[in-house]
């Protein structure tokens, strides 16, 4: 095909666009082929494609070019644009020109957030890990304290019990060996006294220490929550500012 044939066919193919658009387009391609020069003509014609294809691209992409609804199949989209120096698309991506059809801004932003969340996962996952282990530590301290308390109370009960039992058991020995039995009895009474003291300690800790501990824990958790919320808010601001 020669350049003149191309232009004539293009003119025929554009029969359904407005007179003005047809003149403009034919004039443009006429000049285009001249500027390319006769030695480039065949190469340019091959690159442009058939007059039908060029006409379809004009119809599809020049606003207001249609004098009447175009009959037949939908016009071909121009090929997706790609940056030079990079290999062609893989098959899966070919023909998807996402940027040509602007996605809703909200969806794009949500997508960006997900990507950001994924990319920053090493940071926030480690922060999460620290928070979780801190919580586990606090709970561990709590359980440990409860264990100590339990053993204090248990020790008190054992002291009371053992002291009482030995005291009762030593009573028959009073007549046989008064001094030694008295010493033994004193030991038993001392043990029972210690038992009472330990129980009182347990009571005091249960009544006052544990509520105070729970209050302190609550304050700690609230402060941690506020700190995380503040960090999140400033991260959001930083991301918004950078968009």
């Amino acid at each position: 095909m020669t350049g003149a044939e191309f232009l004539r066919q293009l003119n025929d193919m554009l029969a359904d666009v407005t007179e003005e658009e047809r003149r403009e387009a034919v004039r443009y391609y006429e000049e285009y082929l001249r500027d390319a020069g006769p030695e480039q003509e065949q190469q340019v014609l091959a690159e442009l494609g058939s007059p039908a294809r060029v006409a379809a691209i004009i119809r599809a992409n020049v606003p207001g070019s249609r004098a009447e609804p175009a009959p037949g199949a939908p016009a071909p989209e121009p090929a997706p644009l790609r940056i030079r120096g990079l290999a062609p698309d893989t098959a899966a991506c070919t023909g998807t020109d996402a940027a040509a059809q602007p996605a809703p801004a909200g969806a794009g932003r949500t997508m960006l957030w997900w990507i950001l969340l994924l990319v920053t996962s090493p940071v926030w996952l480690s922060i999460l890990a620290v928070v979780v282990s801190a919580l586990a530590g606090v709970i561990g301290i709590f359980v440990g304290l409860a264990g100590v308390l339990l053993s204090v109370v248990l020790a008190g009960v054992i002291c009371l019990f053992v002291g009482g039992v030995f005291a009762v058991m030593s009573l028959p020995g009073l007549a046989a060996d008064l001094p030694n039995t008295l010493v033994g009895l004193a030991n038993c009474l001392a043990s029972m006294g210690i038992g009472f003291l330990l129980l009182a300690l347990g009571w005091a800790v249960c009544g006052r220490g544990i509520p105070a501990l729970i209050r302190a824990l609550g304050r700690l958790l609230r402060a941690a929550g506020q700190g995380i919320a503040r960090a999140w808010a400033s991260l959001r601001r930083a991301v918004k500012g950078g968009d």
Partner: peptide, 15 residues
């Protein structure tokens, strides 16, 4: 700089 068909530019210029 871009992989683009020669026939893509005219509609851009016209638009």
């Amino acid at each position: 700089v871009m992989v683009v068909s020669e026939s893509t530019l005219y509609p851009v210029l016209r638009r």
